[in-house]
Design a protein around this nucleic acid. Structure first.
Lengths: 122, 122
DNA sequence: CTGCATCCTACATGATACTG
DNA sequence: CAGTATCATGTAGGATGCAG
């Protein structure tokens, strides 16, 4: 039995399931793997996400301590988000997911030209 | 640009996001990593899932070719589910998620006795 | 630029009962 | 045993406008 963020889980895999059970968090983390980014950059790079949803998801990731939020006292405002220590440890998992996706397309789908999302496999 | 299962994706990571964006699929796959299992076994082992939802998720995983469904012509009925070739390739990813979950609890949560879900890290 | 406040809807999931 | 059939519900997410 594990207890995190006020919830109880039977298995550590269900923690991961629960945290990432939405449409956006993986994509946000994926883009933060480039390095720290501003709100607007994320808004542009995470395809089709609305401002409202981006804000909510960033807050959730921050509460879960997977990302950090840094505010600069400037005009106009500047806020930068980056992966935390534990967030950084997601990197190999996201890489593996990325590669699995490629494999999956090879077996079950089609590949088209013009993929816009570079691999981040530095 | 990728096209799988009738949908288009900008990035292979979004394929993975889309496929596993629900409350149950990771858990189902996790339990199938033990080996092939019957409907009832899954119903018991995937905590708190209802029959209706289990059926829906198994159908989706089958459509996506991540699991296989095998029917035995017996009375009473016997149906067995198992990971497909591409499904098997999720194994290291789930393992990594499991371990990340442990790390996450160490940093951000509490550990209690009585975790019921063995690690499957044979 | 970085948000928040509303309003709204679709869909994922749950509860329960039933069947070949 | 392995599912369907109904009914009900919460909430994630979208659209839009406003604010410091």
């Amino acid at each position: 039995m594990y207890k995190v963020n006020g919830k109880e889980y039977q298995c550590s895999i269900s923690i991961v399931q629960d945290i990432f059970n939405d449409k956006w968090k993986l994509g946000i983390i994926w883009h933060l793997m480039d390095g720290a980014k501003r709100y607007k950059e994320l808004n542009e790079q995470v395809c089709d996400i609305t401002q409202k949803t981006l804000t909510i998801k960033l807050r959730e990731l921050e509460e879960h301590k997977i990302i950090q939020r840094e505010v600069f006292a400037e005009i106009p405002p500047k806020v930068v988000y980056s992966l935390s220590h534990i967030g950084e440890k997601l990197r190999p998992i996201l890489h593996a997911m990325y590669e699995w996706g490629i494999e999956y397309v090879k077996e079950c789908g089609e590949f088209k030209e013009g993929a816009t999302c570079e691999s981040k496999l530095s």
